[in-house]
Write a protein that binds this DNA or RNA. Structure first.
Length: 567
RNA sequence: CGGGGUGUAGCUCAGUUUGGUAGAGCGCUUGGUUCGGGACCAAGAGGUCGUAGGUUCAAAUCCUGUCACCCCGACCA
């Protein structure tokens, strides 16, 4: 493509509302433009990148047995009412009415539509398994869209759905997708981790997130280099120390004054003790019963784990009134004397603590020299949020913490939707069975944005070769006749060999061209200018590297093709 | 939804405190000089100051409503 004919509105200034690098660079490089909050135009360069990512996804999902379809973005309310999600989904679901006042919604996801499709036409075990997918625009009316393509309200998503006859077959489909995802993100040139994830409201009980590692990620993940285990910090299983006899208490319990000090930070500062030497007590209403959760002061109680461990349906923090009703004081709550009034559960790290501080359940007072076992009793679980310094629950090695951008998420769904929508089939024995499902999403635009977060420098984007808008930037310097002739020839030669070239044939100064091509970030830059051409050379530079190679003009096309093959 | 902030030229912003009829830089157009890392000179084009109403002789500026956008939080995946 000739640069002079392409719509690439670049900007020198950072747009004021772009917070993260990928958003800024996509705006500045003329790849996207905002239409409304969380809603964007994809301009030629940006759209090419999205298409590249989508192509890789299609190839790998097809390879894994998926079949591409396209479902509607506008969906009738009846489907959502049948699954129950019309009432559960909340304001993220954008609802609208047609001219007959019938209810519709913009699809935030397509479980209802595919499941109905399959239910209506799959009747026999012989027709299973089947995996259908699409690359579609989704709409979720997010409370706070931000970061450009990273978290839009309208966004392009690949979503796949597997239908299997039983659980083992469903797991097989799940694993095929897991492998496809590994291949997809590897091909996109990204550093990522597949991490154990919470299944959230979508249901089901087996789930992995694919997280691209980047400082600006909204998620925190713990990963173990020695056994490969990785999980969101909220789920990460933490190594539990051997159960041992609690050491003998070292001193008698003693009440100390902590006037006006309510928070862990205030109290530990006031008492001049480390945060690990005080108990943090957080009280929850767990299915209508009060529970005190304890952890050490420098840890945080993990509500996900608490809920899971207690097999609770509902969990929330106590209100001030409820805390008082339990005989506790906000800012001075503790387990001593709380037995019988509420269930006490503790993080493993609390076990065997024989000399810590704890709230005295009396305004302005704490206890010193509190010993677990003597001063209070508790059940023990893995109850805290993983943090730096924690060890892997699988193998005991140190966790590494990373920030991550969730670009993909796979779920084993079970029969949540197939049951609600009555998607069944007859097995060999003419017995009716419910289809086992899985669903698998990839944020296409978000993947492109994540690639930028991971690959950029002060001058702009450095695209991984596989998803760059063009493989080569061909920069022509000046309009000297020889230069124009050679550059034109090289351009058509490269095109003839199937190389994707952005040919900068504009009447611009060298500095402008170089700066814009650095910004746009194609992996290979070829420069043809009078200075080198006089000696028979062109120049080749990789965007990722600093050095410039001089290549004989006659060898140029082959040289560049080789370069692309090996990148 | 709670708190905070911003709406002035395509982009970044000044002008608002103290009311007097619209500015800068970048970008754009034209001419000239330049020409291998975002050039220089000159002349231009471009704005119902988000929007509706009010106060006033006079409103970008003061008041009220409203809309949009941004940030933090909560919420949600």
């Amino acid at each position: 493509m000739r640069h002079s004919q392409m719509f690439i509105p670049t900007m020198k200034d950072d747009p004021a509302d772009a917070q993260v690098i990928s958003h800024r660079l996509m705006m500045r490089a003329g790849m996207i433009r905002k239409v409304a909050a969380g809603i964007y135009n994809y301009l030629p360069l940006g759209w090419r990148v999205v298409q590249k990512v989508a192509t890789i996804i299609r190839e790998e999902i097809n390879r894994a047995g998926g079949q591409e379809i396209l479902m509607p973005m506008v969906q009738p309310a009846e489907l959502w009412q049948e699954s129950g999600r019309w009432y559960e989904y909340g304001p993220d679901l954008l609802r609208l009415k047609d001219r007959k006042q019938a209810d519709f919604c913009l699809g935030p996801t397509h479980e209802e539509v595919v499941t109905t499709l399959v239910r209506d036409h799959v009747k026999s075990y012989r027709q299973l398994p089947i995996t259908l997918y699409q690359v579609q625009t989704k709409f979720r009316d997010e409370i706070r869209p931000r970061f450009g393509l990273m978290r839009g309200r309208e966004f392009i998503m690949k979503d796949a759905y597997s239908f299997s006859r039983d659980v083992p077959a469903a797991y097989q489909a799940y694993e095929a997708m897991e492998e496809a995802y590994q291949r997809i993100f590897t091909r996109c040139g990204l550093k990522f981790r597949a991490v154990e994830a919470d299944t959230g409201s979508i249901g089901g009980n087996r789930s992995h997130e694919f997280q691209v590692l980047a400082e600006t990620g909204e998620d925190l993940i713990a990963s173990c280099d020695s056994c490969g285990y990785a999980a969101n910090v909220e789920l990460a299983r933490i190594f539990a120390p051997e159960k041992s006899e609690s050491p003998a208490p070292v001193a008698a319990r003693e009440k100390v004054a902590t006037p006006g000090k309510k928070t862990i930070a205030d109290i530990t500062q006031y008492l001049k003790i480390p945060e690990s030497k005080i108990l943090k007590a957080v009280m929850y209403m767990v299915d209508d019963k009060p529970v005190m959760a304890l952890c050490l002061g420098h840890h945080d109680v993990n509500e996900f784990k608490l809920k899971k461990v207690l097999e609770a349906k509902q969990i929330r923090m106590l209100t001030s009134a409820e805390i008082a009703a339990c005989g506790q004081i906000e800012g001075s709550s503790g387990p001593v004397g709380a037995e019988g009034k509420m269930r006490i559960v503790s993080d493993f790290a609390v076990r065997g603590q024989n000399d810590v501080f704890a709230g005295a359940s009396e305004d302005g007072f704490h206890f010193a020299h509190v010993a677990e076992g003597r001063d209070f009793k508790s059940e023990f679980f893995d109850l805290r949020v993983a943090k730096d310094g924690d060890r892997c629950g699988k193998c005991g090695s140190l966790f590494k913490l990373h920030r991550g951008i969730e670009v993909g998420h796979i779920f084993y769904l079970g029969t949540k939707y197939s049951k609600a929508l009555k998607a069944t089939f007859l097995d060999e024995n003419a017995k009716e069975q419910t289809i086992e499902m899985g669903c698998y999403g990839i944020g296409v635009g978000r993947t492109a944005a994540a690639a930028i977060e991971q690959n950029h420098d002060a001058n702009g984007i450095i695209w991984p070769a596989s998803i760059a808008p063009f493989q080569v930037s061909l920069v022509r310097l000046g309009d000297d006749e020889n230069v124009v002739q050679e550059a034109d020839r090289v351009y058509s030669d490269l095109l003839g060999h199937g190389v994707e070239v952005l040919y900068d044939d504009r009447d611009e100064r060298a500095g402008v061209k170089f700066a814009e091509h650095d910004l746009i970030g194609c992996p290979v830059r070829v420069t043809i200018g009078g200075r080198s051409l006089k000696e028979g050379f062109a120049e080749v530079k990789l965007r990722r590297e600093a050095d410039v190679k001089r290549v004989l003009i006659g060898d140029l096309v082959n040289y560049v093709r080789e370069l692309i093959l090996h990148s």
